[in-house]
Simulated assay, not measured.
Amino acid sequence: MTAAVATTPPGVKTDSAVGTGLPRKPVLAGAAVLGAVLIAVPLLLAGGAHDDDRNASRTVTAKDSDTVLAPESAPAALDDYVAEKPSASPSKKKPPKSEAPVAVAPQPVEVAPKPGSSPGKTAEPKTKPKPKSMPEPKPKPKATPKPNWSTETISATSVLEVNQAWTTNRIRMVMQTDGNLVVYNEKDKPIWASMTFGQNHRAIFQGDGNLVIHNAADRPIWASRSHGHGGARLVLRADAKVVIVHNGAVIWST
């Protein structure tokens, strides 16, 4: 069996919204107003309570505070309301910077003048600065003492054979085996020679002042050519010279 469904003919409006399934407009409007009222009522109650708390706090402050003057109190003087300058909070002082020491030149000390001295002149200090010590000079080497050379005087007539000599402590005149008449100094160095070579020569200092060399045949081969001076002397001097002297004058020398 089938159920019968009531249908609304087209073009016909109904007052209820049962047919469509939606609420009507007046119902929606009422619901919106009711919601707004429900929200506003708690807010108003909270605001009133807050105002009551403010009034209560103001009342307590007016009654209990010491800064609110009573109506019967005397008027305040002008000095009572002069604002004091705030005192600066104590600050830690920075330690002063240490300054570098400044060198101060010593002041000259005046010396009292001695009695009897002129006032214009200042007395000199007693203590004089010591002179700088000079290096000691090096000792000079001692000079070697000069030797005391001797002399030798030969008178006429004198003869030198082979290997014989007239000598002093410095020089010597020698007739050598080679026939040469040679003079040697203190260092045994030959300083003069007759340059006569041969066998068995001899030297003769004659009485006429002449020095002559004879060969083995007894013939003269060399001479000083100082003849004609009788009484002359043959001298070996300290200066290493061999001379023939006549009356204080040198007539021959090596």
Rank of each mutant, 00 (worst) to 15 (best):
M1F: 11
M1Q: 10
M1E: 08
V5A: 02
A6G: 02
G11P: 04
T14Y: 04
D15H: 08
D15P: 13
S16H: 05
V18Q: 01
G19P: 00
K25M: 12
K25N: 13
L28T: 03
A29V: 09
V33S: 15
A36R: 08
V37T: 15
L38C: 11
I39T: 12
A40Y: 06
P42A: 11
P42H: 12
P42Q: 11
P42S: 14
A46F: 02
G47W: 01
G48S: 05
A49M: 10
S57I: 05
R58V: 06
A62E: 13
K63G: 03
K63L: 04
D64A: 13
D64Y: 06
A70P: 05
A70F: 07
P71A: 13
E72W: 09
E72F: 13
A74T: 05
P75E: 06
P75K: 12
P75M: 08
A76H: 05
L78K: 13
Y81D: 11
A83L: 11
E84Q: 15
K85P: 01
K85A: 11
S87L: 11
S89P: 13
S91W: 05
K92I: 11
K93Q: 09
P95S: 13
P96W: 02
S98M: 08
S98Y: 03
S98N: 09
E99H: 14
A100E: 08
A103N: 13
A105G: 10
A105C: 06
A105D: 13
Q107P: 07
E110L: 12
V111L: 14
A112N: 13
A112Q: 12
P113A: 12
K114S: 15
S117C: 15
P119T: 10
P119K: 15
A123T: 13
E124H: 09
K126G: 13
K128E: 07
K128D: 07
P129M: 08
P129C: 05
S133F: 07
S133G: 11
M134Q: 15
E136T: 14
K138W: 01
K140C: 04
K146T: 13
P147V: 09
T157H: 08
S158E: 03
S158F: 02
V162W: 00
A165H: 05
N169I: 10
R172P: 01
M175S: 05
M175K: 03
Q176V: 14
T177H: 12
T177W: 06
D178Y: 07
V182Y: 00
Y184N: 04
N185M: 04
N185W: 03
E186Q: 15
A193Q: 10
M195T: 11
M195V: 08
T196P: 00
T196Q: 05
G198Q: 05
N200L: 09
H201M: 14
A203I: 00
A203T: 02
Q206A: 01
Q206E: 00
N210I: 00
N210R: 00
A216R: 09
I221F: 02
I221V: 15
A223F: 03
S224D: 02
G228T: 06
G228E: 05
H229C: 08
H229G: 07
H229I: 06
G231I: 07
R233Q: 14
L236Y: 00
A238K: 15
A238N: 15
V243E: 08
V243D: 10
I244E: 00
I244C: 01
N247F: 04
G248S: 11
V250K: 13
I251Y: 00
W252Y: 12
S253P: 02
T254F: 01
